[in-house]
């Protein structure tokens, strides 16, 4: 287990160094060289934040919902992000996207998404039909509803406004705002510390409602807490690089296979490192070998989607 973790960590490190230093024209050590490295450092930092947020969020979501297929995006998170961005352009025009960039907007967006998630889960869990299937169904329907509203508004936009919007909606690792990174790191760091101290509880929660209750956990409370954490992580990731539907799924599923253990103390670091290797390695190959950096998230979604389908077909059920 430790050997695999070290190997994975080394691969991630090599990828990071590759992304940072490959093919820089100025002499190594010169001022120009460090300028390029520090610009690329923003990309690497973004990837670390996104890998941590997505992997931890997906694993926690799987634990909270006792399934290993559905991801937070199915609950309508990213659709909410898209509808918020679209509404911004729709009501105030394309320049509003640029004008409202900044920490305040990120904070408000994150708070809105967390509030939406918490309200949804509170309502669904406390209701008479408070079970997981109802909740997922409502999540899917809400997601579809948001997507339809977005599509409707997008059709009414002028082509140039639509162009600006779609550039914003496809996640772009090399184009995130460096201003968010310290805040995102801070929040995600704090969340990860909280999650780590609760790792044994998470193992128990993964056994399902009845067994976890028997072992003395307040299941509903714990799950609500977890879902709030998931909402925070996903909203940060989405705000930084846009929607990534299948990334968390690949990373979490591979982590379960590779660790050969279900303990969160093992799965979580594995998932994070796998995410990091996927992002950094993919970026390195695309950018420096195929000169096509912008399409990383498209390719991850494509491969992830295929992987999801294959997994579903092989398993044969939810």
């Amino acid at each position: 287990m430790w050997v695999r973790l070290v190997i994975l960590g080394s691969i991630a490190l090599v990828c990071a160094l590759g992304v940072l230093t490959w093919g820089i024209a100025p002499e190594p050590g010169s001022r120009g060289f460090w300028l390029v490295v520090s610009r690329r450092g923003i990309t690497v930092a973004t990837m670390i934040v996104v890998a941590a947020a997505q992997s931890v969020a997906t694993v926690l979501f799987h634990t909270a919902t006792s399934n290993r297929i559905l991801t937070p995006s199915i609950m309508g998170f990213e659709a909410l992000y898209v509808v918020m961005q679209t509404a911004l352009v729709f009501f105030w025009g394309a320049q509003s996207l640029a004008a409202t960039d900044g920490l305040l907007k990120v904070a408000i967006q994150s708070a809105l998404m967390v509030a939406f998630a918490t309200l949804l889960y509170r309502w669904l869990f406390s209701g008479r039909l408070g079970n997981l299937h109802t909740m997922l169904l409502v999540g899917v329907i809400l997601g579809m509803g948001f997507a339809s509203v977005s599509t409707f508004m997008q059709r009414m936009l002028t082509p140039s406004e639509f162009d600006v919007l779609s550039a914003r909606l496809f996640g772009n690792m090399s184009n995130s705002n460096p201003e968010y990174i310290p805040w995102a790191t801070l929040v995600i760091g704090a969340v990860i510390v909280v999650v780590w101290t609760r790792r044994h509880r998470l193992d128990v929660l993964a056994l399902g409602r009845e067994t976890a209750t028997n072992l003395g956990l307040n299941f509903r409370g714990e799950v609500t807490g977890l879902l709030v954490i998931v909402a925070i992580l996903i909203s940060i990731s989405t705000t930084m690089v846009g929607p990534l539907t299948f990334f968390g799924f690949i990373v979490a599923t591979l982590a379960y296979q590779l660790t050969g253990s279900s303990a969160h103390s093992r799965v979580l670091p594995f998932a994070f490192l796998l995410g990091l290797v996927t992002l950094l390695g993919g970026y390195f190959i695309l950018r420096h070998i195929f000169s096509a950096a912008g399409v990383l998230s498209v390719i991850i979604e494509f491969v992830g989607g295929l992987f999801f389908l294959i997994y579903l077909l092989r398993k044969g059920r939810l």
């Binding site: 799987h62 006792s66 399934n67 290993r68 193992d203 993964a206 056994l207 399902g208 009845e210 067994t211 209750t213 028997n214 072992l215 003395g216 956990l217 307040n218 279900s262």
Partner: peptide, 22 residues
């Protein structure tokens, strides 16, 4: 509190399915 109760009372249901492999 469930936590206190778990030291006094335990219950095993008929069907147990875990997503984790143990």
């Amino acid at each position: 509190p469930s936590r206190e109760l778990a030291k006094v009372l335990s219950i095993l249901r008929q069907e147990n399915h875990f997503i984790t492999r143990l």
